[in-house]
Amino acid sequence: MYAPEIKDNLFIAKKIIEKYPREQRYSLAVLQDIQREYSYIPRECLKMISEHLRVPVSKLYSMATFYKALSLVPKGENVITVCDGTACHVRSSMVLIDEIEKCLNIRPGQTTEDGKFSLQTVNCLGSCAIAPVMMVNDKYYGKVTPNTLREILKNYGGVENE
């Protein structure tokens, strides 16, 4: 399983956390900044945030598992998000998910062994008119077919030339 080393032995996390006042209302902001730095929220950071903000770890854990943008497990360098909402589902989003599974050997919620890709599904990306829709990092792709999916993955180094 992919598990990156935490950079600089948590020195960076400490600097991020300490820039915030010791108030509970900054919990989400701190979690987001840690997520942005490490691509996930390491367990060690939850404890550090808890101590700094005087918030129980259980409350931080609840927030980290409630918000889809936050993750307690390492994410890949490229995060693939496939919409599986109604419009995308009826236009075969499951075929795209199956194709990604075949190409990258990962299922939703998993990361490739090399840490290059993570796959997640969401209920809506707000682009129903161009369904099925997926994102890679922050870039949207609409009307995706298995063939265009393979081309998209090639652009990120995820599928070898055939």
Rank of each mutant, 00 (worst) to 15 (best):
V95I: 15
Y156H: 10
T111E: 06
C124T: 00
Y38K: 13
L60M: 11
S71P: 13
L60F: 02
E18F: 06
R107T: 03
F11G: 08
I106N: 08
S118H: 04
K139H: 07
A129P: 00
T112H: 13
D98K: 15
I12C: 04
N105W: 04
I97N: 06
V136Q: 09
L72Q: 11
K154H: 14
Y141A: 09
P56K: 10
T111Q: 12
I6E: 12
S58D: 15
N9Q: 08
G126N: 03
Y40N: 12
L119S: 07
E18V: 00
R107W: 03
N155P: 01
T121Y: 01
N123H: 08
E101A: 14
V82M: 13
E101D: 13
Y61L: 15
V144E: 03
K102G: 11
N78F: 03
V90H: 14
I80R: 03
T81K: 11
E18C: 09
C103A: 15
I97A: 11
R25L: 14
R54W: 03
I41G: 08
F11C: 07
L72I: 11
R91T: 02
L104W: 01
K14T: 08
P4Y: 02
E77G: 04
E5I: 05
I41P: 11
P146S: 07
K139D: 14
A131R: 04
G109D: 12
I17T: 03
Y2E: 08
L28M: 14
S27K: 09
V82Y: 03
E162N: 15
N137W: 05
L46T: 07
P42V: 02
S127V: 01
Q120D: 08
G115R: 05
L10R: 00
R107V: 02
Q110R: 00
L70W: 11
T65L: 13
Q110V: 00
N123W: 04
N9G: 05
T148W: 03
M63V: 13
N9T: 02
S27F: 05
Q24I: 00
V73T: 15
I16R: 01
E160G: 14
L53C: 12
I6Q: 06
T112N: 10
G115M: 06
S118R: 07
V79C: 10
L119R: 01
R150D: 04
D33T: 08
M1N: 01
M48T: 04
G109T: 03
I17Y: 01
P21L: 06
A29T: 04
V79L: 15
Q35V: 08
P74S: 12
L10C: 05
Q24F: 00
G85Q: 12
V82L: 12
E113S: 07
I100R: 06
E113R: 12
L125F: 05
R43K: 14
S62V: 04
T65F: 03
V90K: 11
R91K: 15
V73G: 15
I106A: 10
M48A: 09
S92W: 10
C124H: 02
A64C: 14
C83E: 09
I100T: 09
L96G: 06
C83Q: 08
T112Q: 13
I16A: 06
G142V: 01
P21H: 05
G76S: 11
R150W: 04
M63R: 06
P132E: 13
R36Y: 10
N78D: 09
G115I: 02
L46W: 05
E160F: 07
E51G: 03
G109N: 11
P146K: 01
S50W: 04
K75T: 10
D84H: 10
K14H: 12
V82F: 07
